[in-house]
Structure formats: structure tokens, C-alpha cells
Design a protein around this nucleic acid. Structure first.
Lengths: 201, 201
DNA sequence: GTAAAAATGAATAACAGTACCTATTTTTAA
DNA sequence: TTAAAAATAGGTACTGTTATTCATTTTTAC
């Protein structure tokens, strides 16, 4: 099963898989909902899923599909090379991870490996390139996360305090605690972090 | 001629074009350099170019190719739907603009239109959705643009002043002038703008 | 039910950016 | 060569963030 919301990319994917795996039967869908509808009927061995899809993304779809069929192998495709994303994806029981701009043989390698019950990563070294922001972000409390969302919108402590009906001092304390957890120092480093990473929280 | 640095997408593109335009001869390249090397030999009527490619992007490649062959029609493909990008692309003599996640027939429509000497946009309405930040950004002077780059890296006025060997007051003045041009007010609105739009300057 | 964690609030000092001015020197273009 | 534009620099008042430390109340979990 192949799922990607980009029709042209999906077409390329199917052609390549058909060329490489001549005996395989391939079913392609441009939406997660379509894929879910047909999953039990086609009952595939492998699902190759785009990470960034509207409504239900690749990870959520994978979780849904693996509930239906525990032995299903899932390979996630993505354009994003951010280590933080990849780390969080691997933590969610995905069997393979391939970048969309990789060469074709990366994907066939991935298929062979996951069928042999191995985990396959296109570029394992990418995981060692930066600190694990994701793990630290997970240590933020609900309120801290909410405050961080407001900070990402460039609201002042006063504005956040007013919308949440608390004292400015409370927001300033939250800012401080968040900065400490994320090991951010210096002026506006928290704002910069929030703006750059808003899609992660 | 088709040029895209994503091999899988390129494969899909070629298959679709071959299906739709059965009489056409299609040459595909995964890099701008390869495309430039072979351009005069294959002498195509249309070039379909990815916007985001390393080293030479689609716009620059288009400019190079149109110098060699003035009558060449160029269709740009992109994932980005930001009006600012599209506006600046259209200003550079591109004949067509199609989004990568569009349906297949968008591309064939575009090809028909540009061959009939029309300009084709996948979604012309996107141009009316926001203010034209690009035009305003173009009014920034060289130094203002440089300062903005430093601001986007969350440097303080003092740090920027030290690296450019000028007074902190000069940098503060630049900040002020840039903010006025971009119509930004309030605390850290310039920093937020710089971080969010750093790839535009 | 109690201990830990989270959320709330405050005081203070230092640092940084905003928003106005004014003014001089240097560069660019007509 | 001269007028306009750009870059330089300073003044001042204000707003906002950072970095500490301390303290109370509320929520959560065992």
C-alpha cells in the first residue's frame, strides 16, 4: 500500500515500485481516509506512507493501521530532515524511514530490510547531529506549553497574562522555567526558539 | 525538458507527461547543471523546472536557459504556496506556475496554455491573499538587508555593531528604519518577522 | 491523606529593543 | 557638480525580557 497526497509523486512511486518489485501488487491512495477505507480489503504486507498529509498524517495513519494488522510493516517518507522529527517518528514503532529526495534504491533497500524485520533509516547519522529538543519539549507542563504557543505569536508577557487571566509575574516565571528546561539563555532566545519550532508544540 | 532534484518525483513527472503527450520527446535531469550541459543538444520547446533546487534554483536556471533560447517556454513547479514567492517568480518572465501537489491535469493545462503564448497560474487567487511583502523588502538598502540577516540570527544590536565595526546607535537606527519600511510596530516584531522570513532576504 | 509537582505571585537589578528626535559624513545618481 | 539617498552617530524616555530568589496555593499521583 502506498499513500501520498501529492499525485505526481505518488505516480512516480508506483512506477518505481512496479519496476523494482515485479511480483508485487501495489495499491495507491492520495489520502489517508481512502487508505483506511480499503486497508482490510487489500490487506498489504507493507505500507509506504507520506509523513505530511492533511487530516491524518503518516504517523497517525500508521498507528491506526497497526491496530488493525499488528504484523504490518510501515515505511515513512518525508521531505523533512530535522533530527527532532525523525527521532519522534522512530519512537512510534515505524519500521523504516526514507527521505523523499533520496535515490530510488534507498526505498527498495528499505523494503528489503523491513521485510527482514530490521529497522531501516536512510541516514542514521542525522540522529547524532543535534541535541534532542523533542525529549526536552516533552518535559514541559501543559501550562508551559500553552505559554510557549502564545510566545510563538510574539505576544508580550502582559498580553499573555491578560488572555490567561493571571499575573504578569506568573508568565515571567513560566518564561524563565521554560528557558531553563530548553537551556536557552540571552535576550529573546526563547522567542526565537518558539517562532522557529512552533509546529512541534 | 524536465528538471527536478527529487528522483522519485521526476520519475512520476516523466511517466505522466509521456502518458499525456504521447508524441513528445522528454528529457529528464535531476540537477540544473546536467540540464544546462544538455540544453543546446536537446533544444526543447518547454522546460518544466523545480523551483527549489540546490546550487542553481529553477528561476536562475530559467534565466540561463532563456538567454540561450529566447523563445523557450518555462513552467515552474513548487511546493511553496506563499504569495510572496509566486509574485517574485512571475516578475522574472516565467510562463507558467504549477503547485507540486496539484492534480496531474493542472500540468497538462499549463503546457497547453504556455504553448499558446499565455501565462498560466495554478491558482491566480493566491496572489490577492496577502500584502506584498516582497515589494517592500525590495526597498531595503544593502546595509539594512545585512542588518536584517543578523537580526534573523537573534543577534543583539551590540553584537551586530561589533561584527560590522559601527556604533550600536547605527544598528538601532537601522532597526528603526527597517521596522518603519515593513510597517512593524511593538516589541520584537522585527525579530519575529526576520526569523519567519529569513529565506526571502 | 500526604508528598511531590505544578501553578501562582512578587521583588529587584540588569540588559535589550522601541520610538521618537537631531545631525554629520559618505555615497550614488542625474 | 550638486541634490538626494544612505550610512553614520548620539540623546532620551519608555517598554519589555532575563535572571535571580523566595513564597503560597492548587493539582496530581501514590
Amino acid at each position: 500500500m502506498v499513500v501520498d497526497d501529492h499525485p505526481i509523486f505518488l505516480k512516480g512511486l508506483v512506477e518505481i515500485l512496479q519496476d523494482e518489485l515485479k511480483t508485487a501488487t501495489i495499491f495507491a491512495y492520495t489520502s489517508s481516509v481512502e487508505a483506511l477505507k480499503n486497508f482490510t480489503i487489500i490487506n498489504p504486507d507493507i505500507a509506504i506512507l507520506d509523513l505530511d498529509m492533511p487530516v491524518i498524517n503518516g504517523i497517525k495513519l500508521s498507528e491506526n493501521l497497526k491496530v488493525i494488522k499488528l504484523t504490518l510493516k510501515v515505511i515513512i517518507l518525508t521531505m523533512h530532515k530535522e533530527p527532532d522529527i525523525i527521532r519522534s517518528v522512530i519512537a512510534k514503532g515505524i519500521d523504516g524511514f526514507v527521505f523523499k529526495d533520496d535515490a530510488v534504491n534507498e526505498l527498495t533497500n528499505a523494503i528489503k530490510n523491513v521485510l527482514a524485520n530490521n529497522i531501516y533509516l536512510s541516514d542514521p547519522s542525522i540522529l547524532n547531529q543535534t541535541e534532542d529538543k523533542n525529549e526536552i519539549l516533552a518535559t514541559l507542563t501543559k501550562t508551559e506549553c500553552l505559554v510557549l504557543k502564545h510566545i510563538a505569536q510574539n505576544k508580550t508577557s502582559k498580553q499573555i497574562a491578560d488572555t490567561l487571566f493571571v499575573s504578569i509575574k506568573t508568565i515571567e516565571n513560566h518564561r524563565n522555567n521554560i528557558s531553563k528546561k530548553l537551556q536557552l539563555t540571552g535576550s529573546n532566545s526563547l522567542l526565537t526558539f518558539a517562532v522557529k519550532n512552533s509546529r512541534f508544540f
